[in-house]
């Protein structure tokens, strides 16, 4: 019997740099977090914040440049070519762009057969039934979809096929990299509902990545916000939205368009969005946010702040909130 609070995934000081002609892209720079079994851990941030790179490194598209990551007790320090089959079975991903994530030359049957053939040999020859079962799980009638090609179905349906493909290996952990950002809200609602239902039914742990804070509010148990490869703040979801500490969290919250006065009240008023996210090739010294920060102090341009726990489970990395005893 496993404990509910078991950390299924631990990431410690994860670093992923890309070496390009323009210089070193510090996409992920010393990121640490742990994900508990059965929870949905949210990673939010703008483009270039490194949130997708974190997911891609964890699932094995890249080998980390530094730091450690463990799934249970197996190291995630290598890319897919050196990972065990069991690890590949247990860690799966749903990609952001449903258009690019399904091979346009494969029928849906072929797409869903692949993980079955590799990881579930016990299903033997009867792939059609197994594939149909997967399609029913994501609420697509098999008789209608089995032999269709990706270009013949809508974006939402493509993403459901991608979810079925990820779940085909019966994984424990799924990284959801902006699974609905390319879709309309009415379809998004359906997919999110489906994901939550499947999570309960199959005892899944999610790493949920999005740039949409309103969606995050309704999906995650805990939220971490990233800026230029580093985590700026981590907190349980309710706390994160009611008492945001980091100026960047506040800026992001103040920028989102909402649809009711009730939500308008939750948006921080005293802060306005300015500037652009700098290139991750050229990260400003000190706190990387200080150039855009409305509450910037002298120390911010010199010294990179460290994570401190302001309240139980609520961590923030900002000089406004110095660690006790400093």
């Amino acid at each position: 019997m496993t404990v509910m609070n078991e950390d299924i995934l631990r990431v410690k000081g994860l670093v992923k740099h890309f070496f390009t002609r323009l210089g070193t892209v510090r996409a992920v720079d010393n990121v640490s977090f742990a994900i508990r079994r059965g929870e949905t851990f949210g990673l939010v941030g703008e483009s270039g914040s490194g949130k997708t790179t974190v997911a891609h490194t964890l699932v094995g598209i890249y080998k980390p440049t530094g730091g450690e990551a463990y799934f249970r007790d197996q190291s995630l320090g290598e890319d897919f070519s050196h990972r065990s089959k069991a690890l590949k079975k247990n860690i799966r991903i749903v990609f952001q762009d449903p258009g690019s994530s399904l091979n346009p030359r494969w029928s849906i049957k072929q797409i869903l057969e692949l993980p079955l053939r590799i990881h579930r040999t016990s299903y033997g020859k009867n792939h059609v039934e197994a594939v149909s079962e997967l399609l029913r799980m994501v609420e697509l009638p098999p008789e209608e979809y089995l032999y269709k090609y990706p270009q013949a179905i809508g974006g939402g349906e493509k993403q459901m096929v991608a979810i079925a493909r990820a779940l085909a290996t019966e994984p424990d952990f799924v990284a959801l990299d902006e699974p609905t950002s390319a879709l309309d809200v009415s379809i998004q609602a359906k997919i999110i509902k489906l994901l939550t239902r499947l999570q309960k039914k199959l005892d899944l742990t999610y790493l949920f990545i999005t740039h949409d804070l309103s969606l995050m509010r309704n999906m995650a148990n805990r939220v971490a916000i990233m800026y230029l490869g580093k985590i700026a703040e981590v907190a349980p979801t309710r706390e994160f939205f009611q008492k945001p500490l980091h100026p960047y969290t506040n800026m992001l919250l103040s920028s989102i368009p909402v649809t009711s006065d009730e939500e308008e009240k939750l948006k921080p008023k005293q802060i306005r969005s300015t500037g652009e996210i700098p290139s991750p090739v050229n990260i400003p010294p000190g706190c990387s946010f200080h150039l855009r920060c409305p509450r910037c102090m002298d120390i911010c341009s010199r010294l990179d702040p460290v994570m401190t726990e302001k309240e139980a489970g609520h961590w923030v990395r900002c000089h406004l909130y110095p660690a006790a005893g400093q």
């Binding site: 809200v185 009415s186 379809i187 998004q188 609602a189 359906k190 999110i192 509902k193 949409d212 804070l213 309103s214 969606l215 509010r217 309704n218 979801t237 309710r238 939205f241 919250l253 989102i256 909402v258 649809t259 009711s260 009730e262 939500e263 939750l266 948006k267």
Partner: peptide, 16 residues
């Protein structure tokens, strides 16, 4: 349509 929009107040999502 209005119901399917996720709210910052976090009252869950409709079924679409």
């Amino acid at each position: 349509l209005l119901k399917t929009i996720p709210k910052l107040t976090g009252k869950g999502l409709s079924e679409g």
